[in-house]
Nucleic acid binder design. Structure first.
Length: 466
RNA sequence: GGCGGGGUAGCCAAGUGGUAAGGCACGGCUCUGCAAAAGCUGUAUUCGUCGGUUCGAUUCCGACCCUCGCCUCCA
């Protein structure tokens, strides 16, 4: 069964066939580093991570690029307000972004190009020059350069927007009165006093690149003129991705991206996430202040299909914690059985269809809900007959789980147990052998105060973080 | 106003023209020195509302209600 994706461009499910067999060129729009990214941003990045991991699970080599927008209105405003150079202002947010990626176990792309890098600026300028030469762009009096959307008849095809309807009701901003058409967008923005010392030289005078050209230049520069998949949040469809198509295709005269995948926004507690509503969360708010782990947040963001709106709730985080506990517990049990396996041949035959269901669900436009359901089906079924599971079968299950976890990225971190706790557990073991329950309970409390919870099982004491 | 999503048990959510996956929560049971944990198990005559097509619709069609996104730099 082929992998199928819903292509925003055609608005249909399509079989996925990359341009070059075995290789996927993937471009994903990254953050604007003027602030800490919020969980809505991370829904998109987690979805893209799932996409990359599943493609890799299916044997593709994924070449991925994610840009960092480190110059735009907001970053300039921020550095001016702070009275520091632009790069100094954006640096901490870049660092924080990578920390957050790690916390959410998002695999690194091959490249994280920064818009302000000299070679990328050069490429943007060169693309704009080509667009001007070809008549797709024009210089306004103030030195800004605009893309002439009338010169690209396909403009609007991705978003399914009819240009004539677009005109109605749009207010023309005073600083852009020189545009031929209200829909024309900036490729190059002329320097303005409010920009301070943020500017680059160009054939049109001092200024800075527009947002859209940044992605066109960095994607085609690093991945070549044609991408297999281009992703982003649904809000990027128009105008951002529409503009990228126009700019790129007018330069390369090739189809820019073969597949467009967009994820829906999330809501928080059933409402639109907004600072004013008090339901606005960065990842740090959840991990550092509320004590959720990155893995738990990842599960909450991952467990709903990317094309459905996701309702992010505190209760949902609790559900994520419990569900992960169930997976962890099962993993621990099966691994214990598998440890005594003596054969490398371990393919549980009667489980095969269940085991395959995981990948098949993801092949179907990344149906993660169905994929997770298949995982829990396997867990329930094997728990039911846990006493009969042979070491070899357990080993087979662990192999399957390795594959599943390479996609989900939800493996439990086997935490280091401090020596002090180890000693107390040993003492308690002795007390229990002597049926000294009083001492046993005292030790259990003591261990609890050190941040670890004891659970007595048939096979002895089990430790988990409190 | 235009375009596009979504409304399925207490919560989060799959899904299909033929009679509702999975997770969480809750109840029952097993296990257990106690406790907790863990495991098994039960729980939607019903899929926003009203019509229509059909032998049969949650699934197709129409209308309506609610909600979210985009409509020029917001994932």
């Amino acid at each position: 069964m082929p992998i199928r994706f819903f292509n925003t461009f055609s608005r249909q499910l399509e079989d996925f066939v990359p341009l070059e067999p075995g290789i996927v060129r993937l471009y994903t729009c990254g953050p604007t580093v003027y602030n800490f990214a919020h969980i809505g941003n991370f829904r998109a990045y987690v979805f893209e991570d799932l996409l990359q991991r599943h493609l890799e699970y299916r044997g593709y080599r994924v070449l991925r690029v994610m840009n960092l927008t480190d110059v735009d209105d907001k970053t300039i405003r921020g550095c001016r307000a702070a009275g520091i150079p632009l790069a100094e202002f954006t640096k901490p947010f870049k660092d924080a972004f990578f920390e957050d990626l790690d916390a959410l176990r998002i695999k690194r792309a091959q490249h994280f190009p920064e818009a302000t890098a000299a070679d990328h600026i050069a490429r943007m300028i060169s693309m704009i020059e080509t667009l001007v030469e070809k008549g797709h762009a024009y210089r306004a009096e103030d030195g800004s350069v605009y893309f002439r959307i009338r010169s690209f008849p396909a403009y609007g095809q991705l978003a399914h927007i009819v240009l004539d309807e677009l005109q109605a009701g749009v207010r023309i901003r005073s600083d852009e009165y020189e545009k031929e058409n209200v829909g024309d967008f900036a490729l190059w923005k002329a320097w303005d006093p409010a920009d301070g010392d943020v500017w680059w030289e160009s054939p049109w005078g001092r200024g800075r690149p527009g947002w859209h050209i940044e992605c066109s230049a960095m994607s085609t520069g690093l991945l070549g003129p044609q991408l297999d998949i281009h992703c982003g949040g649904e809000d990027n469809i128009f105008p951002h991705h529409e503009a990228e198509i126009a700019q790129s295709e007018c330069v390369t005269e090739l189809q820019f991206s073969r597949y467009w995948l967009h994820c829906k926004h999330l809501q928080v507690e059933g409402a639109k996430m907004a600072k004013s509503a008090g339901n606005f969360f960065t990842l740090r708010d959840l991990t550092k202040e509320k004590g959720w782990s990155g893995r738990e947040v990842r599960y909450a963001l991952l467990s709903v299909k990317y094309r459905e709106p996701l309702n992010f709730t505190m209760e949902g985080l609790g559900a994520a914690r419990s569900a992960l506990g169930r997976i962890d517990e099962w993993t621990r049990k099966i691994r214990e059985i598998a440890d005594s396996a003596n054969s490398a041949d371990a393919d549980p035959p009667h489980m095969r269809s269940n085991l395959a269901a995981f990948g098949q669900a993801l092949d179907d436009d990344l149906n993660i809900s169905a994929a997770l359901a298949s995982v829990f089906d396997v867990i329930r079924e094997t728990n039911r007959r846990i006493e009969e599971i042979s070491p070899n079968e357990a080993k087979g299950l662990m192999t399957w789980l390795d594959g599943v976890q390479s996609v989900l990225g939800l493996t439990s971190e086997e935490s280091e147990i401090p020596q002090q706790v180890r000693d107390l557990v040993a003492q308690r073991e002795q007390a229990r052998l002597e049926k000294d329950w009083k001492t046993s309970d005292v030790l259990r409390d003591k261990i609890q105060t050190l941040g670890w919870t004891i659970k007595d099982s048939k096979n002895g004491q089990k430790l988990t973080r409190a």
